[in-house]
Design a protein around this nucleic acid. Sequence first.
DNA 1: AATGAATGAGCTTTCATTCAT
DNA 2: CATGAATGAAAGCTCATTCAT
Lengths: 213, 213, 213, 213
Amino acid sequence: MQILKEDVRNKIREAALSEFKREGYLQASMRRIAQAAGVTSGNIYRYYESKEQLFDAIVQPVFEQYTVNMKEIHHKVELSYQSDERINPVYFKNIESTLVELFKTYSSELTIMLNQSTGTKYENVKSDLRQLVYSILERVLLTIRGEETRLSPEDHALVQMLSSTMMEGLCLLLRDNEEGDTLRKLVDQFLFVNYQGINALIHQETRKRSGME
Amino acid sequence: MQILKEDVRNKIREAALSEFKREGYLQASMRRIAQAAGVTSGNIYRYYESKEQLFDAIVQPVFEQYTVNMKEIHHKVELSYQSDERINPVYFKNIESTLVELFKTYSSELTIMLNQSTGTKYENVKSDLRQLVYSILERVLLTIRGEETRLSPEDHALVQMLSSTMMEGLCLLLRDNEEGDTLRKLVDQFLFVNYQGINALIHQETRKRSGME
Amino acid sequence: MQILKEDVRNKIREAALSEFKREGYLQASMRRIAQAAGVTSGNIYRYYESKEQLFDAIVQPVFEQYTVNMKEIHHKVELSYQSDERINPVYFKNIESTLVELFKTYSSELTIMLNQSTGTKYENVKSDLRQLVYSILERVLLTIRGEETRLSPEDHALVQMLSSTMMEGLCLLLRDNEEGDTLRKLVDQFLFVNYQGINALIHQETRKRSGME
Amino acid sequence: MQILKEDVRNKIREAALSEFKREGYLQASMRRIAQAAGVTSGNIYRYYESKEQLFDAIVQPVFEQYTVNMKEIHHKVELSYQSDERINPVYFKNIESTLVELFKTYSSELTIMLNQSTGTKYENVKSDLRQLVYSILERVLLTIRGEETRLSPEDHALVQMLSSTMMEGLCLLLRDNEEGDTLRKLVDQFLFVNYQGINALIHQETRKRSGME
DNA sequence: AATGAATGAGCTTTCATTCAT
DNA sequence: CATGAATGAAAGCTCATTCAT
C-alpha cells in the first residue's frame, strides 16, 4: 500500500512528536514510533537519517526562533546592566511573550525542547533560560536592596528559588495546555501571582529589617 | 574480609538512592549501582529481587508515611466538604509541613518518588498530590465565589494551574536543596509568594467583576 | 525523455562493473549501482533479477571464454601427460596469452572474476587456475627431476608457491593496469623475471644436489 | 555452565581470528564469532568492547612489532639515500626477515593485518609496505641506470610492478603457510627467484639498449 | 518501463537478570 | 553469601529486494 511521501513524513513526525513528548529522547523507541506511524522501522530512515536527526527535525525550528528572541532579550539585559538603568519586570514579559508566541506555533515542540531533551544537544536550554531569569531577578533585587554588587547568600538562594519555580511553572503551563488563549491567560495569571507575591515578600522583608534595626 | 549483611544492603540502598536521584528509574543502571556500592551486580539480587523492587525498597517507606499523612489531610478536606465548613489555607500548611517533615527523614527518597519515578507504580504520586491541592484550592475558591457547587471553566483552569505550579515548585525545592533549614525557609518564602499572589489575584478579579456589574 | 531498454541495461552494467571492481561482490551496494547508473534501485530488477544475477551477467562472458581457452590448455596438458611428452613453458605462454587476450576484451570483468568474486560461484576460479599452473609446473619439474611420478614434499611446496605467486602476480597486473600495451609489457617482464628466476633456482638446486652427492 | 574467564577470552579470540581471516573485518559477523566461540553474542562484549576493539586486540601486537622493525628499515633506507651509498638487496632481506620473524609469532594476525583489514585503521599497511619496497627498488635501479634522479616512466611501471608482485607474493606465502620453517624456505626461494629474475631482466635490457645505440 | 516507498531480516551493541561456581 | 560470566530480548540502524502506482 503506497502513500504519498509527505504524508508518511508527517505521520512519522507526528508519531515521533508524541513519542518524544511522552517518553523523552532517550526512552523513545524508533520501533514504537514506526508502529504508531503505521510504517516499518526501516522505512523511517528514508525520511530521517537517525533518531537524533528526527529529534532535531522536530526541535530545531522552535530552537532557532527561540534563540533569535532570547538573544534580543539577553542583549537588552546586558545593555541595561551597562547603562546602570533600572531593570524592571518588563523583561519577564518579554520572555513570557516569546515563549507564548513560540507556543502558538510549536506547542509540543517547545515542551519537548524544554522538558524532554535529555541526551540531546538541547538538554541545557531550560537551565540556560533559568539562568537568564536569574540574572534579571538578581538585577531587580540588587536595585531594590540599594547599591550592593552581589546578593547576600540568602538573597541568592531566594532568587535561585524564584527563577527555578517561575521557569518550571511556565514550562508546566506549556506542557499541560493545548490551547493558546487559555495558555496566555494562565501565563498572565501565573506571572501576576508571582509579581504580586514577590513584591509582598520583599516589602515584608524590608519592613522586618527596618523593625529589627 | 566478610561484610555484615545489613551493611551490604545499606550500601546498595545508598548507591541506588544516588543513582535513582541522578538518573531516574528508567535510566538508572544496575551495574552502576553495583559498582558504586562496591558490590557485584549479581549480588544485588540477593538483597533486592529486581530493579523495581529495589526502587520500591527506597520509595515505599516515604510513600507509606506520605500516604498516612495525606489521608488525614484528605479526610479533613472531605469532612469540611460535608460539614460545609469553610476551608482555609491551613491545609496547604498541612501539606507543606508533611512534605517538609518527610523531607527531614527522607529527603532524597521524597524527591525520587515525586520526580524520578517514571516507569514505576509511583509515577502518579505527584499528579495525585496535585489533585489534592486542586481540591483544596477549589474549595477555597468556591467559598470565596459564594455558593456555587462547581467552578467555572476559567476558575477551573486557574486552580489547575495554581495547583500544578505550586506542587511543581515544591518538588523543585525538595530536589535542589540538600539542607533542611534552607529548604524550610525557601518553602516558606515560596508559599508566602503564592498565598500573597493568589490573594491579590482573587481580589483584583473580584474588583474587576464588581466594576463590571 | 525515454531511454531505450538496451541503453539502460548497459548503464546498469557499466555502473555495476565499476562498483564490483571497486568494492567486491559482497561490499557492493545495489543502491550505489543504481545511483551511478542514473536509474532507480527498483528498476535494476527489471533488467537483472538479483545482485548475484547482475554479477553473473558481467562475469559469465569472460568466464565462458576463459573456460573454453583453459579447457584447451588443460587438454594439451593432459595429452602431454599421457603421451609422456615433455611439457615446456609454452603452456605458460598459452595461459598468459589467454589472460592477456581476455583482458583486451574484458579487462574489468576479468579482474572482477579473479579478484572480487568472494561470495559468488566464481570465487574458486583463481584457485582453479592456480591449480592448472601448478600441474604444468609440476610436470615441468618432474621432467627435470627425471622419471619420478610424484614430486617430493619440498618440490610440491615449491611448485605450490610458484604457481600461487605467479597467478597472484598476474592477477595484480590485470587489476592495476588499465591499458593493454602497458599490461602486456609488464606481463612479459613479469614472466621473464619468473622464468629466469625459476631456471636459476632449479639449476642452483641441481648443482647443490650434485655437490652433495 | 561456567568456564574460566581467560578460557572464554581465548575462545573468542580464536573464533574471531578465524572469522576475520576468512571473511575480512567488514564481512565478519559478531554473531558468527560468538557461535563459533560457543558464547552468546552479548557475552563477547564483556571481553571486548566492540568489533573494532576485538579486531584491534588481534592485530595491534603484530602491528606494533611490525612498526618497530619497519621504522628501522625505513631509517636505514633514508640514511643510505642521504649518504648516497649504494642500496643493495640486503634491505629486502631485512623486510623478509621481519615478516618471517613476525610470522613465527603471529602468523594469522599478520595475514589479517595485511590482507583482511579493509574498514579498519590498518587498511593501508600493505600499500605502505609496498611503497617502502618500491623506494628500495627504485634506488637500486637508479644506481644501476647511472646518475639519474627520477626513473623513466617505463622503469617506474616496472618497479611498481615488481614491488607489487613481490609484496603480494610474500603476503600470499604468509597466508597459505601455517608452518614457520616451510615458510622461511619458500620465502627464500621466492626472493631468490625474484632477485635472479630481476637481475636477468635488467642485464637483458641493458644489453638491448647498448645494441640499439 | 519506471518509480521509489516499503519491507523485513540482519547487523552491532546494551543491559536487567540468572546461575554455576 | 558472593562472584561475575552468561543470557537473551531489545535497541538503533542498513540494505537487497518487492510492489503499488
